[in-house]
Each structure stands twice: as C-alpha cells, then as structure tokens.
Design a protein around this nucleic acid. Structure first.
Lengths: 335, 335
DNA sequence: CACGGCGCTGTAAACGTTTACGGCGCACGT
DNA sequence: ACGTGCGCCGTAAACGTTTACAGCGCCGTG
C-alpha cells in the first residue's frame, strides 16, 4: 500500500513533462511516439488516475447522492435499483444517504452539498418543510426531488399520483361488485396519507357510493397497525366486503386478521394493497396492489439529474408518473 | 449557484491569513478574538468546507464503497442496512456499487480503488476468482470481503456458515419427527450451493438418516425454479414429509406447488427456507427460515473496516457468523 | 535594559491534476 | 537565406485545503 505512482512518476520515467502525460492520458492530440512512451510508462507503473485531484481541478466529482428515509423500505429500494444503472451508464457513482426520516438529517444532507463531494442530489423526503424548500432554493448543486413539492418550487420534481392510484383501486373493487369498501389508511398528516384519503372520497363519489366514516380506519403504515385497523373495522362493520389498504404492509396485516376471522379472500372480502412491493407477490393469496411507479420515478429522477448536469440552464421539469393497478388473487385475479 | 466562498474569502473579510482561518475551522488553539472574527465571517458568508480539496491534502475521503451483485437482493439489502449506520456514525459516507454478478465489473471496482475516491471497500463477490485474489492482495486501499475466501488470503473476511445452517434446519425437521427430508438446492458450482449440499449430507448422517439422491433436486435460486423442483420431487417421491429449501424464494415456490397439490403445510409437508428475508414473515403460512446472519455480517464487515482504517497494521481478521433458526408456522411454529 | 521563551500568526509549500501560454524546431514559401 | 506558420511540448499557475516553519510582539527574569 505504498504511495502509488503519479503523473510525475510517469513523466520522469518517460522523459517528458507532466503536461504531456496529462494530454496523453486524456486523449488530446499528441505525437505518436510520445503517446507510446507515456502509455508504456503508465502501464509498467500500474498508474491509476487520482480521482480526488482530478475533481478538485475539474470541479466535477462524478458522484450523485441519493437521500431517502430508509434503505430497508422496498419503495426506496425500487428507486435505488433504477437510479443506479442509469447513473452508472453515464459514468456516475451513487452515494447513499439514509436519513431515518429525521428532518434534521435531510437538511444536513442538503447542507453538505456545499462540500461539493457530489455533483448533484436526488432526494425523496418524507415530509417537505419550509426549511427544505429554502435549502433547495439556495443549494450549491442541482437537486431533484421525488415527491410532491409546491408548484413553482425551482427544482426538478418527480411525483407519484397516489390520489389517482386509490381511484384506480376503488374503481376496480366497484367493478367487481363490491359496495362496502373499507379503507385502512396511514396518518393523515403525511403527504401520502392525505392524498390517499382524498382519492378515496373522490373515487367513492365517482362510483356513486356514499362516504361512510365508519368504513375508514386511520393507523400507521406497518403490518401490525394494519392488523389492528382491520380488526377494529371488522368489529364495527362486519358487513364490509372489501378493503382498500394504503400500502402493502397494511394489507398483509389485514390478510392475517381476515384469515383468523375465517373470512375468505377474495370471496368474502377482497383486499387491495398499494406500492406493489415484492411482498404483494409473495403473500397468499397474492395481493392485488397499486403500483405507484417507484421504479419509474427513480429512473426519471436519474434522467432529470443527468439532463440538468448537461444543461444547468434548462427549465425545471415536473413529471408525474401515473399509477398502475396490478391485479392478483386477492381481488379475484385477472378478469 | 455562483462560486461559493473559500478559505481565502474568509481570510480577506476577517483580515487574517488563510492559515488562521484553517486553524480556527479545525479547532486548533487560536486567540479568542481571532476565532470570533473568523467565525463571524464564515457565518456571514455561509461558508462550507470543500471536501474534495480537503481530501486531496489529507488523503482521506471519508467514503467507503460497498460492492455487491444486486441492490435488489434482500440479502445484500440487509447488509447495506447495517453497514450504513455504522459508517455514518463514524463519519463515513457509503458509495454503492451494483455489479450484476459480472466478474469483470467486480474487478473494475477493485481496480478503481487506485483512484482513491474511497478510503476502503467492502465487497461481497458472488464467486471468488484468481483475479479477485490477486487484485485484493495488491489493492491500494483496505478491503473487507463478505463471503468465503481461501484461508490465508491477506484480507479481512466475514463468513456465513451455511453448512451449519442447513444442519440446524435438518435437525429441526428431524426433531419434529420428519424422516423423508427433501432438499431443493441451487446450482452446485456456486459457493452457497456446494456448501449447502455438503451440510445436507452431513446433517442426515448425524441424524442417522440415509442419503437418498431421489430426495434431492438441483435448480436455481428463484421462485419459479423452486416451484419446478418441488413439482418434480413430489412426482418422484410423493411420500416426502418435509422440504429443506436453499433459500426463501425456492421455499415460496415450493409453498405454491404444495398448496395447489392439496398438501397441507406443515401437517403433510413441513417447509424450511433460508436467509430469513422479509418474505419469510410475509408468506402464508409464515416460513421457518435459517438466518445466515446477513445483517450481522454487514455490521461486522463495517466494524472490521473501521478497525483497519484506525490501525492499518493490525492482523487480518476472519469472523464467522453463526446461523440461527427462526421457527414459524411452516414447520409447526415455536415449540 | 537585554534576552530567552512563549503564544500566536503569516508565508509558503504541498497534495495530484488540468490547462493557458509561450517557446522551440521544422517545413514551407518567397 | 530568412521570415512565417504550425505542431508539439514544457513551464507554471490554478483548484481549495492543511501544515511546517519562521517571525513577531510581549512578558518575565536576571
């Protein structure tokens, strides 16, 4: 692990100046025999260019950061999975930040952009605060936000449409003859929670079904919470014939409860999840789920980032990725 | 996004030299009013230290790379999840490489260590070739390998013991009265495939059961492959009373097949998976699975890396993480 | 009062690149 | 034979830090 060779070592050995070495290494026009000498020396020394020095001079690190709440969450995972190859193909490395949904940590990441260790940041904040918006506006490197930001925010933005996603699911249930559609939601003060609630009410209206608060449970986005919510809803409204769940984990919890209550899925109660994580396919019965396009959003975000790096002056884009319903056994399978 | 302030800007504004600024910023002993002047100027300018320049001088980037075959694979995911917080707590960033199990890509990552954009590399290669070993031995930055490398390889190494893991599972099945234990394995030319096969044979012997080739199927590590293998095994040996599966996906495939064949799990056939991914808990019936300690291995690898960075001269460590059986419904639940 | 020592500060070099600029040698035209 | 232009090349500056070293002022001591 001794000190590696530098451009100087090569210059000495090849009997040329460091400028020539640099030129050869960067493929700039150079006389043929100089190229040969330099290449030979570099080869023999096992030279590898120092990325740090290069970045200092060129002001490009060829690194992009991705900040999310939790590496373990399948939704973010799907994003990473798409972001990674896009960036890699363009010659960028991926730096991962897991903020545990702590706002201070997210602000920290934004702040650290000033250190210039990355060329840009893709982030998917759990909540968007005033602080976020202020930091984003003054950030020293391009930012792409996955998730809803207020219209007019000067930033590239990729959105899901969970509103429309819920409508898709409710329509599907209605189309299969269900009329008492329960709704197991997460907290209403989160962006997804609020949007999904609104989507549920609207969809009912569009189907000509009444909104019945008794059919709605608000809990959290976890399996246990889903089970609890399902239990309570079943106790209150045993006649419920279907459950719209605000994510797949809630739906899994609901399946557990339905099973031990002896309700058949989908015959007695149909169930729809949301996010279409790999858990949906693993569950039994396999879970119909609304794909909100996490993967697609990741891909688009990466592409927007590349576009901005290529042209920093371009207009800010706002892309909304449409949801897609994946029908499986829990609502009776493909028609 | 104009050029940010540097140490020079601050020096000018505060009326001191850049050396003093640097000293203040690094907390080196300085007169109180100098500190105040510098801090004030830095504050007003919104100064953030340039990480690249700092790295160039200090020869530390405070970045660690993690290279794995596939970000989407839950086993690697579990590792990332543990590695991230350990590194973060020590002030390191995580750079992710997904190699798609392409050996050339892995070699590439090893090679790029010479660029010195990271202080070290944690890798979990799918197969370990001669090239790997050669590159690791001459790497210009510390490497920690998760997975088996030949004894004596000069590298920090964290191993799973899938051999012992299979024994654990087979013992468990035997203890629950199963005598015709089928084995659905992955390819024998992979490190895990070979180790698991050996573990299976040994475990049978230890239990006093005969090894019956008819009870063994070799396929691949995917759900579809698991289903296919299970179908064939059931056709050949309808009397099989339990299935040891070389990973959770294979087990899920097996569950599908058993269900549609009308075999009850665990009453007619008990099933054990491996890796204890989140799919195991999501499945129905929930899947007994052998946790090979992916999470633990990630944590240990990160710690070994930090230890080596702290003391480059220390002896190479080889840590083997013991497997753990997680009993769920597919083998009858906790005793 | 002279001097040694100490605490603080500034100057400058270094980390390993990229690149603007000027110089040198050669071929060519007059 | 001499100027011109062109193609390569080397010198040196720059990127933004950290840090060795030397200098300076001040205090206390002899």
């Amino acid at each position: 692990m001794a000190d590696g060779p530098t451009i100087n070592t090569i210059a000495e050995r090849a009997g040329v100046s460091i400028a020539s070495v640099s030129r050869v290494l960067n493929g700039l026009p150079t006389r043929q025999d100089t190229v040969a000498k330099v290449m030979k020396a570099a080869q023999e020394l096992g030279y590898v260019r120092n990325a740090v020095a290069r970045s200092l001079k060129s002001r490009r690190t060829h690194q992009i950061a991705f900040a999310m709440a939790d590496v373990g969450n399948p939704v973010y995972l799907a994003m990473v999975r798409q972001i990674q190859p896009v960036l890699k193909a363009a010659g960028y490395r991926l730096v991962l930040h897991s903020t545990d949904a702590v706002v201070a940590d997210e602000i920290d990441v934004l702040h650290s952009l000033g250190e210039r260790y990355v060329d840009g940041l893709i982030m998917s904040p759990i909540r968007v605060t005033e602080d976020h918006l202020r930091m984003i506006a003054t950030a020293r490197a391009p930012v792409v936000v996955i998730g809803l930001v207020p219209d007019g925010t000067p930033v590239d933005n990729v959105r899901a449409d969970s509103h429309a996603g819920v409508r898709l699911a409710v329509d599907h249930l209605h189309g299969r003859g269900r009329r008492r559609i329960g709704f197991l939601n997460g907290p209403l003060d989160t962006v997804p929670g609020a949007a999904r609630h609104a989507g549920y009410r609207e969809a009912l209206e569009a189907c000509g079904l009444p909104y019945d608060p008794q059919l709605v449970e608000v809990g959290d986005f976890y399996r246990e919470a889903g089970a609890k919510a399902a239990r309570e809803l079943l106790a209150r409204r045993p006649d419920v014939d279907s459950l719209m769940c605000a994510n797949d984990l809630i739906a899994l919890g609901a399946l557990d409860v339905l099973r031990s209550a002896g309700r058949r899925v989908p015959e007695d109660v149909a169930v729809v999840g949301m996010d279409d994580t790999e858990l949906a396919a693993a569950a039994w019965p396999s879970l119909t789920s609304v794909d909100l396009g996490s993967a697609e959003r990741g891909r688009v975000a990466a592409e927007l980032m590349l576009a901005r790096l290529a042209d920093p002056e371009r207009e800010h884009s706002v892309v909304t990725v449409p949801p897609r319903l994946v029908v499986r056994e829990s609502t009776g399978g493909a028609a």
